[in-house]
């Protein structure tokens, strides 16, 4: 089995990272949480992250800009955007710029779990170990 996938969660609302961390760790991912997108980007440049979960509207840098930088730096990385202000235009822009998926807040943890699992699968990695359990619906 390949190395554990690493996920970065970026949201200036601390609750999001706090709540998502256990959800993702239970799937076997290594998780790092950031409230500041600029710091997150700096960390992205030095570390190896396969999946980024980011808010769109943040102080400092918006999620679309983050998406563009991440994709420029690591085209293979899957970026999942979440937003409390969903609109078809932003969704279209996000998808056009290569976002893997676009989720509206508030969302159920399970919804995000499924999306991250799909992202992991599409990376061609082995599915994380718990996905066998998760297939039982």
């Amino acid at each position: 089995m390949s190395e554990t996938l690493r996920v970065m969660v970026v949201d200036d609302e601390p609750i999001v990272g706090r709540r998502l961390r256990p959800v993702l760790e239970k799937l076997g991912f290594e998780v790092e949480v950031f409230e500041d997108p600029v710091l997150a980007l700096a960390r992205f440049a030095e570390g190896r992250f396969e999946i980024v979960v980011s808010d769109i509207r943040m102080r400092g840098m918006d999620g679309i800009a983050l998406l563009e930088r991440v994709r420029a730096h690591a085209p293979r990385a899957k970026v999942i955007l979440i937003t409390g202000h969903p609109s078809p235009e932003v969704a279209a822009e996000a998808m056009a710029k290569g976002a893997f998926e676009y989720i509206a807040k508030p969302f159920k943890t399970d919804a995000l779990r499924r999306v991250v699992e799909r992202a992991a699968l599409s990376l061609g990695e082995m599915p994380p170990p718990s996905s066998s359990g998760s297939s039982e619906e």
């Binding site: 969704a91 279209a92 998808m95 998926e101 676009y102």
Partner: peptide, 11 residues
């Protein structure tokens, strides 16, 4: 839902 012309091909 949210499926449009620009959605990723795989999805």
């Amino acid at each position: 839902k949210d499926l449009s012309l620009i959605t990723g091909r795989r999805l």
